[in-house]
Design a protein around this nucleic acid. Structure first.
Lengths: 120, 120
DNA sequence: TGTATATACCTTGTAAAACAAGATATTAAG
DNA sequence: CTTAATATCTTGTTTTACAAGGTATATACA
């Protein structure tokens, strides 16, 4: 039960969310994920993921010059990507509810999660 | 982005929670997960997982007769399993917060829930 | 008796995902 | 000239969930 296993199928949804918020490039997404509390998602994870999502038509990319360093590859959501994001949001919501239901009903004297049942 | 991918590293934590709630056997756990909203977690997933957790010393098992069918293998949590459950609860809580923070701040069409950027 | 059904466990092989550990460039600062 | 920060990509490995089977027990019913 490593921490990375719990990210499977979730990181790509988070990337879609970040891209929807604002056109963005891979290196920056890694930093953003880190800020959001994910512990250092590897670039070896992010870049293949972005390429796969582009291959699937969820995102498009444009290369732009950077003021400090090599060119950046900015990603944007396609219509299909927007749909995929919505699918992710609904699946995440369902998963969250199911897991929290189990935790609430099955565990006794639990810590780590005090009554704040997250909305969404 | 399949639905099963999002379960990676989460099902085992949920099983630990179910077992903590009450001594339980594999076939019943599958039914419980289904009731909790997980869509039909395969027995090909659950049994190998339980055996792995026993190998790792997180659970112990006892065979007992059933009133209708073959013998059941009841699992209980060890001290180590209790610790593993607590680890899972804290990791899940952290993941939940991170993902919801991203969703709240990055996606549009979000409900008016104001995102206070709490640390950790 | 035979057979269908629900119960209960287990195995094998496969695909997807995340990551470590690199390789490769570009730009600025010392 | 060297170092560091920025930026992208590749290869090989490990973990995980699952499909698709197999085996066995007990009950109900014809």
């Amino acid at each position: 039960m490593s921490q990375t296993q719990m990210l499977k199928g979730i990181i790509d949804g988070c990337l879609l969310a970040i891209i929807q918020g604002k056109e963005c490039y891979g290196y920056e997404m890694a930093e953003r994920l880190s800020e959001y509390g994910f512990c250092a998602v590897s670039e070896g994870t992010i870049y293949p993921l972005l390429m796969r999502m582009q291959r699937e038509g969820l995102v498009t990319s444009v290369r732009k010059n950077s003021t400090a360093g090599p060119k950046r590859k900015y990603y944007s959501l396609t219509e299909k990507g927007n749909q995929a994001l919505e699918d992710f949001l609904s699946r995440w919501s369902q998963l969250e509810k199911s897991v929290n239901r189990i935790i609430r009903q099955e565990t006794k004297g639990n810590d780590g999660n005090n009554g704040t049942t997250s909305t969404i």
